[in-house]
Design a protein around this nucleic acid. Structure first.
Lengths: 226, 226
DNA sequence: CAGAAATCTGACGGTGTGTCAGATCATACC
DNA sequence: GGTATGATCTGACACACCGTCAGATTTCTG
C-alpha cells in the first residue's frame, strides 16, 4: 500500500471539521448530538452493524454532516472512548489514595472493585470496542486503553513495591506484572458481570472473590474471612 | 454407503446448506475452504471490515457460494468458535487432572497458565469476536463461551470446594465465583499478552504472577517463593 | 455416456459509503 | 430592517457490498 498525500501539518485539534476549520457553537452542538446518538446506537445494536446512515437518521441529520465531523464511525467511538477514559481517572484515584496498609486495606480493595463495576456499567459498550480495537492492533485505541489501565496498574504497582520492601511480598516479583494481572481481572470480570450472573453467581459473591484477590496480590496479606 | 453415514457428526444440522440439503464431499470442501479464508481474513483485517465479498474473492469463489453455506459472516465465525472451543477442552483437562494438592499444585497452576497462553495464541482473533458478541448479548456465542470457560471454571470450583472442606480456604466463599474470577484473569491476560509486553512486562514475569494467583485462589495455599 | 443431483455463479434490486458543489442558516455590521 | 459573509448542512452521485434467484456448470450414478 502506498501513502497518499496527507496533511500532518494541521494541529492536534481533534475537533477540527472535515474542511480543517474550527467549528463554532452550532457546529459543536451538532457534533455533540452525533456523538450522543453514536453512543446510544452502539448500546442498542452491535458494533458491526453500526452504520453512519443510522446515526445520522437518528440524529435527524444527513450522513454528509456526520462526515463533516468524523472521518468514520471508529473515530467517533474514539472520542467517546476518550471521554470514558477521563471518567476512569477515579479508579486511579482510589488506588492511589488507599489506604492499603493496615486494617483499611481490604476495604480499599472492595471500593476499587465497586468502582470498576460502576465504571464498566457506565461505559460497557464503548470499552468493549476499545478492547477489541486494541487487540486488533489499532494504535489510537491502544493509547486510550494504556492511559486508563496503565495509570491504575502503575499506581497499584507502587503499592506492590512497598509491600515487597517490607518483605510481605517476596522479592523477585515484577510489581507491574502483579498489578497488571489484577487490573486485567477487574476489567474482564466487570465486563462480563452479566455473564457470571447467568452462571448463577451472585454479584455479592463475585465482589468478595475479587476483593480478596486484589488485596492478596497487591499487599501479600491474607484477607479477613468473608 | 453404510460406512459414510456413521460420521461423528451429531447435532450438526449446522452443516446444512442454504437450500436445506446435506452437502456432499465437494460441498464440504468448499465450505471448509471458506472457513479457512474467513479465519485468515479475520486475523489479517478487522472484524468490522470483514466482508463476504472479500472472503469469497480470497477463496476464489463467488459471494453467492458463501451464502450457500452460511447465512452471514457471523455464522461462519461461530463455526470457527466452535472449533476453537473444542481445542479448549485441553484446558479443562489440565484443571481436572491436577494434581492440586501437595507440592505439585503450583506446577499445575503454571501448566494451566501456559495452556491458556497457547490456546489464546492460536485462537486470538476468533476468541475476541466471541467475547464481543457475548458481551453484546448474542446467545449463540455466549453458549460457546460458556461451554468453554464454564467447563474450566466448574472444574476449578471442584478443587476450591475440596480446599474449603479442608479449611484451607475459608467457609462462605462461593467456589464458582472464585474459579470464575481466576478464569477471567487467565483469559484476559492471555488475550492482551502483547499489550503487557508493550508495557515492558516480560512474559516470564507475567507467568509467575498469574500462576501465583491461580494457585492461591484455588487452593488457598501460599505459593512458593518465585 | 445420458440423466440426475449437486454445486456454482452472473446478474439484480436494495442499501450504505464517502465526496462534492451548492443551498441554507446565523450573525455582524450598517 | 437589510444584506454581506462565513459557517453549516444536504442532495446527488459514483462506487461498493448485500443477499437472492434462476439457470449454467460440474460431478455422480447407473
Amino acid at each position: 500500500m502506498s501513502e497518499a498525500d496527507e496533511r500532518p501539518i494541521e494541529g492536534e485539534d481533534e475537533l477540527r471539521a472535515a474542511d480543517g476549520r474550527m467549528p463554532g457553537r452550532r457546529g459543536l452542538a451538532t457534533r455533540q448530538k452525533l456523538l450522543e446518538h453514536t453512543l446510544s446506537m452502539l448500546e442498542a445494536s452491535s458494533y458491526r452493524e453500526l452504520k453512519v446512515i443510522d446515526i445520522a437518521r437518528e440524529a435527524g441529520t444527513s450522513p454528509a454532516t456526520f462526515y463533516q465531523y468524523f472521518p468514520d464511525v471508529e473515530s467517533a467511538i474514539l472520542v467517546l472512548a476518550q471521554d470514558a477514559a477521563h471518567d476512569g481517572a477515579v479508579l486511579t484515584e482510589i488506588a492511589t489514595a488507599g489506604p492499603w496498609k493496615g486494617p483499611g486495606g481490604y476495604d480499599t480493595a472492595g471500593r476499587l472493585v465497586d468502582a470498576f463495576f460502576e465504571f464498566w456499567d457506565s461505559h460497557q459498550s464503548v470499552m468493549r470496542v476499545v478492547d477489541l480495537a486494541t487487540a486488533q492492533g489499532d494504535d489510537r485505541f491502544r493509547q486510550i486503553r494504556v492511559r486508563l489501565l496503565n495509570d491504575i496498574a502503575s499506581s497499584l504497582a507502587q503499592v506492590v513495591r512497598h509491600f515487597v520492601s517490607t518483605k510481605q511480598l517476596p522479592d523477585g516479583l515484577d510489581p507491574m506484572a502483579q498489578a497488571g494481572v489484577v487490573v486485567s481481572m477487574l476489567a474482564h470480570v466487570s465486563d462480563h458481570q452479566m455473564g457470571f450472573e447467568f452462571w448463577g453467581i451472585k454479584t455479592k459473591n463475585l465482589r468478595v472473590s475479587m476483593a480478596r484477590q486484589v488485596y492478596w496480590t497487591i499487599t501479600g496479606q491474607k484477607p479477613p474471612a468473608p
